[in-house]
């Protein structure tokens, strides 16, 4: 019999079952977005805040497909290069009525999309003061993670690798240091490519994984969404189960006594 564990994920005072957070960008259409999210089992989905197209208003709306009553909507500040723009975007997002949880990203460079850490910290300070539940996207930088935790962020979200790169966790050692010191959830955000990358993040002890391109950019996004769901679950169970230590030499699995001959 399979043992069912009650392993809930607490974030910003809310309880979730799924430890996979997914984005809604880069899908072929809203229907594919909806199906992929369903297959992923995610309960938290990220969205971007953009100007309404006032000249072409025929377009359908993302939230017609992703029901905010069913999913926790996590607006991001993607595309913001200053603390001021990120703060402005968060205020608008909250005004649009999806709560106060925000994914804060202040980008420092177009080519790498690495975060501008001082600007991220400055924005987080203001947003926390204004009552936002801030989830900052950062480098795999333990010092930045600590600062952001101290100033009241709800979680920290170190990148595995550059956004959309699919390189997987490039510095598991830094993620381990972040995990060791953090008392808030650590969510690996960005850079995941394959299901095994998500499993590695969970095996390290991360609370959750956030991804978009790895699913949306796959040849079959629905199948990949399912693979990611299973990888996150498997990685989490593997972490909780406690792996064996790595050793250089063999240890026989079969008894040494009673061998014939």
């Amino acid at each position: 019999m399979i043992r069912t564990m009650r392993d809930e994920f607490q974030l910003a005072g809310q309880t979730f079952r799924s430890r996979l957070l997914v984005g809604t960008g880069k899908y072929r259409d809203f229907d594919e977005t909806r199906r992929a999210i369903e297959a992923s089992g995610a309960e938290i989905v990220t969205v971007a805040v953009r100007r309404v197209n006032v000249t072409d208003r025929s377009k359908e709306n993302l939230l017609d497909y992703i029901d905010p009553k069913k999913y926790t909507i996590l607006p991001n500040t993607a595309g913001c290069y200053t603390a001021e723009d990120a703060i402005r975007t968060c205020r608008l997002a909250r005004e649009a009525g999806v709560g106060s949880l925000v994914k804060l990203e202040v980008i420092g460079d177009e080519k790498t999309l690495f975060p501008d850490v001082p600007a991220t910290i400055a924005a987080a300070e203001v947003l926390v003061r204004e009552g936002f539940q801030v989830l900052p996207y950062i480098n795999d930088d333990p010092i930045a993670a600590k600062r952001l935790e101290e100033l009241g962020c709800a979680a920290v979200m170190p990148l595995a690798a550059p956004i959309g790169s699919g390189l997987g966790i490039r510095n598991p050692y830094n993620i381990r240091i972040i995990l060791e010191q953090a008392k808030i959830p650590v969510i690996v955000d960005a850079g995941v490519g394959a299901a095994s990358d998500a499993a590695v993040a969970m095996e390290l002890g991360c609370a959750a994984v956030l991804m978009n391109t790895a699913i949306a950019g796959a040849k079959d996004p629905i199948l990949m969404a399912e693979a990611m769901r299973q990888a996150v679950e498997a990685g989490r169970k593997s972490f909780l189960a406690g792996r064996i230590p790595m050793k250089l030499y063999a240890t026989a699995s079969s008894p040494l006594a009673g061998v014939i001959g």
Binding site: G25, T46, V47, V49, L63, A96, A190, N212
Partner: peptide, 10 residues
């Protein structure tokens, strides 16, 4: 006037 809404994003 700025009017924004939510679109797909990661």
């Amino acid at each position: 006037v700025e009017i924004v809404h939510f679109v797909g994003g990661g």
